[in-house]
Structure formats: structure tokens, C-alpha cells
């Protein structure tokens, strides 16, 4: 309990506020009286809305993180980024090919990568961002999709990139091309969709829909359960 009461001073828009030491950047701002309308989303590290740049006491470096996942420290300077105005090209996924050409056309900036690794250092998800950009340059779309899989689109990579690459948008294209064109199709799935379209299960389901509660209860509790 004692630990929860411990306070630290953080600086918001340059002004010092005393907040509980266990606060994240988001809850620290709220404790200080800011009602957030942008730069905040799921508050659990899944949506990427709360990209933030902060600076710790005595340090010159600007650090990147998610405000809902970063615990404050004494003397920290914090600010919220409301929106990342990055480029997002328009395309029809059914007309693209899952290879390097799609990126040459839609994301030519990826080829400007200077391998500085700033994007990787900025990523709050610890994704090897530079490695997936390099995979795209080599035309290995599936590898880029795999490496970028955990991206939550906070945009910090693009904000910090000196080569003006929009990594996180290129990553979603790599994953969509992989999901649509490169992964094997499930034969079971195709078959089941066809069976349903042909009405194979309609009669049995309609029978259940008309079954009274007592009877259906019995069917439910007596059904065989197979785990997997």
C-alpha cells in the first residue's frame, strides 16, 4: 500500500504536477486534470492510439512509447500525440500481386531505408521494424508479414524515420497480400461454405429452432464434448 501513495513530479506542457508513482502516462495526465479526447484509445496496449514522446530527468533523448503502457518517473516530461498524418495509398487488393512490384508502386519510400534502425528502437511492441522493411526491399513479403504481425499502428516508426518511410502502413499491405495470396487455402473451409450454401444443415437447425426448452436443454447437456 505504501508504494501506491508514493508521488513523483511529471511535467505536462512544461508545467509540473505531482502524481502517484505507479501512474502510467495516461493516468498521470488524468490525475493532473486533463480529460483526454485524442491520443487515447483502448488503454491496454492494443489499439496504438496513444503514441507518446517523453523525456526522462537529466536525459537529452526523446523516447517513444505507448502512454497507457509506460509508467512515469520522477522529473519526466510528457506529451500526447493526437494523430499521425501519414500517407496511406489507395489500392484494390484483388488487383495486386504478392511481390516486390506492389511495394515499388505503392510504397516506393521503403527502398530509401538507410538501415539506421531508428524505427526498431522506437517500436513499443519490440517489433524488428527495420528487418521487415529490409524483407520488403528483398521482395520477401511473407517474412515482412510475419515480422510485422504484432503491429498496432501507433505510427511511432514513421514519426522517427529519417527516410520518411511509412513502415506501419507498408506492413499491413504485406500482411494482407500474405493472407490473401500466399497462405495455403483450407479445403475444409471451401467445402463447408459450399455445403451451407446448398442448405445441407437448414433442416436440422430449423428443427432445433422449434424444439421446446426442456428438450433442447437435454440435448445440450448430453452432447458429446471433444476438446482440442
Amino acid at each position: 500500500m505504501a508504494k501506491d501513495q508514493e508521488m513523483v513530479k511529471v511535467y505536462i506542457l512544461g508545467e509540473g504536477f505531482d502524481v502517484p508513482a505507479s501512474s502510467t502516462i495516461i493516468t498521470a495526465m488524468e490525475y493532473a486534470g486533463f480529460q483526454l479526447t485524442t491520443g487515447v484509445g483502448c488503454r491496454e496496449g492494443f489499439c496504438g492510439a496513444c503514441a507518446t514522446l517523453y523525456r526522462e530527468k537529466g536525459d537529452y533523448k526523446l523516447q517513444a512509447g505507448l502512454a497507457c503502457q509506460t509508467v512515469v518517473s520522477d522529473g519526466m516530461y510528457i506529451a500526447q500525440i493526437p494523430f499521425v498524418p501519414a500517407e496511406k495509398p489507395i489500392y484494390d487488393i484483388t488487383k495486386l500481386t504478392p511481390d516486390i512490384n506492389s511495394f515499388k508502386t505503392l510504397y516506393p519510400t521503403v527502398f530509401r531505408c538507410v538501415s539506421c534502425n531508428t524505427c526498431t528502437k522506437a517500436c513499443p511492441q519490440d517489433i524488428e521494424v527495420m528487418d521487415y522493411v529490409q524483407a520488403l526491399i528483398k521482395g520477401d513479403i511473407a517474412k515482412a508479414a510475419d515480422l510485422s504481425f504484432d503491429c498496432i499502428r501507433c505510427g511511432l516508426c514513421a514519426l522517427r524515420c529519417p527516410a520518411e518511410i511509412v513502415q506501419y502502413n507498408a506492413g499491413i499491405l504485406a500482411r494482407r497480400l500474405t493472407g490473401r495470396y500466399l497462405l495455403k487455402k483450407s479445403p475444409d473451409l471451401e467445402l463447408r461454405v459450399k455445403e451451407i450454401a446448398e442448405g445441407k444443415y437448414d433442416k436440422d437447425i430449423e428443427k432445433l429452432m422449434k424444439t421446446n426448452k426442456e428438450k433442447i436443454k437435454k440435448l445440450y447437456y448430453e452432447r458429446e464434448v471433444k476438446l482440442g
Binding site: I93, A145, F149, R175, R176, L177, T178, G179, R180, L183, K184, K185, S186, P187, D188, L189, E190, R192, V193, I196, A197
Partner: peptide
């Protein structure tokens, strides 16, 4: 449901697969 999965797959959602392509 199965058609919803197929729709998502065709839009490019990378569902986890077994080596034979089944989900």
C-alpha cells in the same frame, strides 16, 4: 460463420494454419 471466415481470409486476414492449410 464459415463464409465470414472465408471473406476475412480473402481480404487478407492471416489466420493461424496447420501445415496442410487447414485452420
Amino acid at each position: 460463420a464459415p463464409d465470414a471466415i472465408k471473406w476475412l481470409q480473402d481480404l487478407g486476414v492471416m489466420f493461424d494454419r496447420n501445415p496442410d492449410g487447414t485452420m
